[in-house]
Design a protein around this nucleic acid. Structure first.
Lengths: 346, 346
DNA sequence: GTGAAAGCGCTAACAG
DNA sequence: CTGTTAGCGCTTTCAC
């Protein structure tokens, strides 16, 4: 068993200076003689000193820790978010604690409590619960991400522009000659679902279609859920399912599986449009056409904003703190071009 | 701005007892009068007290933090590992810091330094560098995961039994009537690659084939890399590529893409066998047949072992601390059954 | 420029 | 059973 980790006192002793001189050098403060700086640096390296961020944080009130709470780390989209946040945090020399809430408000609450206890300097959270009481430890800066974020008054947020993104998808479907898509949405209780659905409804109304005719199935944002939902959709024989718009890529992938299992050819018989832009969508067959959200940028931006708030306090007006990043269409192979087919026939 | 977080002193004051009595109650120690316990608990809840784990850790020498260093959080296999570790850590009321090394030794080193500075109580690491100097902060318990783990003498490890897993794959290919597979392996410098390759070689020798005839391409464990490698393999016209064995699922998925792009039907013309058991393999077309490694169990086991070592010190013999979990064949649709075809013809 | 001293919030010995 | 007293390793006044 190695001896205890060397402290700043050990460094000071080895360098023959006082604790505070050593501290100053190590913190890179000015007003230090070159000799002292030299000797302290050498001593630190020599004895393998590594600053104890816990102890430092204790005194300075900064733990150097950031939290990230996302719904599902095994979903490649959220994994990308984690990557983006991680990288941005590391660039600021901050450590990130990533926690997966599993879409469960209770788990989310436990994670948030853990972050509070760890005295994180701030947290980026994708809220699962639509109503949250004390998301942060009172006074801890928080930045929300995701489509439901704006529901929380007074908390800054960054996310994709869901109205724009869904519209992008609907317009694309129309441009390819599709009519109203059937929908595979997330769990009924989620606010994100409502927002997604409402954009679709608005689109229907604008094109003189009855939103009430929309075939809708709900799932839990997983491949398995999307697959089951697609099967249910197929069982509804009264509705035509020329195309399906899924609210995330995992469910879209599940829909693809279901179609394959049911012997329905995609995109020839049924088209599928995803929503996320998971890199993994490029591996399905047919490759998934999807609306990509800039996962890494969203995360990086959220962390930047968080760091800003930590440093500058809650200075800026909240209105400036609603960032919307545009989605972008990634056209691959799961949506058929009916317009071309129509043209060909003519 | 909210006031500073309440401390144990605030609780004590509110409950009308001393700091240590409050501490005892909060720590659940015995020898406390029911009245005191009652009042402290009530006071804690009333003022919203939340223990400061940093401060606590400072005194007790335990930070309550665990580290996990994996190569790539966006790879679903490693995401599963993260999940497993996270869950196990949470069960022990420990927080986990997950870091992605990106297969880069320098990044890995930085992450490990961050963990050391955060004074994690222990860390689970998948070593990227085959030779590592001071992996842990001297004295910090470490458990290694992954196939290269055993190369580190004196550090306990848990991983899949790579010999068993690769053999499983080779035997399966043979049972389906395939001969020697072409290989898509990881980067040349990685120890894991050598071990994988050597099992294949041994298999060749046992079946009177010349290992020198093996067609081998290297990639970086990504979809993109696997795809490029498969294209290169296809370009080698001198070798027959009845089947390809990839060293991880992402590369196998990339191979599937390449095959599709080249107009080669899988599994009819070329079979592909993966290695990992990423859940996402079920979404490709054809669905990926693969050797599944128990990601969550590996991670959970590693964390359990780590906690054990933290609690009990470095007590047990290292020999007992090499855990190998068996892989398992997940037969889906990317490997053709040539034996059946042969039988049918007869 | 440098050192001495006072805590940050908590736990762990000690006494009572 | 409970209160008092030291620190954990660091930062941060405040003197010199």
């Amino acid at each position: 068993m190695a001896a205890k980790a060397p402290t700043i006192i050990d460094v000071a002793k080895a360098a023959g200076v006082s604790k505070s001189t050593a501290a100053r050098v190590l913190a890179g403060l000015p007003n230090i003689s070159d000799t002292a700086r030299e000797r302290v640096r050498a001593a630190a390296v020599a004895i393998g000193y590594e600053r104890n961020t816990l102890a430092a944080g204790m005194r300075s009130g900064r733990s150097g820790l950031l939290g990230l709470v996302i719904p599902d780390i095994s979903n490649p989209f959220w994994a990308e978010v984690a990557r983006g946040a991680q990288d941005r945090a590391a660039a600021a020399d901050l450590s990130l604690m990533v926690m997966s809430s599993d879409w469960d408000p209770a788990t989310e609450a436990r994670h948030i409590q853990a972050l509070r206890r760890a005295r994180v300097d701030g947290a980026v959270i994708n809220p699962v619960s639509d109503q949250v009481g004390d998301l942060p430890g009172a006074g801890t800066p928080v930045v929300l991400i995701g489509s439901a974020a704006e529901a929380f008054a007074g908390i800054p947020s960054v996310g994709s522009d869901i109205h724009h993104a869904v519209t992008l998808g609907m317009d694309f479907l129309v441009s390819k000659g599709h009519d109203m898509p059937s929908l595979i949405l997330g769990p009924p209780s989620r606010l994100a679902r409502t927002r997604f659905l409402n954009v679709v409804r608005r689109h229907c109304i604008a094109r003189d279609r009855d939103p009430g005719d929309l075939a809708i199935e709900s799932a839990d944002y997983t491949v398995r859920g999307g697959r089951a939902a697609m099967h249910r959709l197929l069982a509804r024989r009264t509705v035509g399912h020329g195309c399906v718009f899924a609210a995330n890529d995992m469910m879209a992938l599940g829909a693809l599986m279901a179609l394959h299992e049911a012997g329905v050819n995609c995109p020839r018989d049924v088209s599928v449009l995803g929503f996320d832009g998971s890199p993994i969508g490029a591996c399905s067959a047919p490759q998934l056409t999807t609306i990509a959200k800039p996962a890494r940028e969203i995360a990086a931006r959220a962390v930047s904003m968080l760091i800003d708030r930590i440093d500058r306090g809650t200075a800026c007006a909240i209105e400036e703190l609603r960032v919307h990043l545009p989605g972008r269409l990634v056209e691959r192979a799961s949506v058929a071009d009916l317009s071309a087919a129509v043209r060909r026939r003519a």
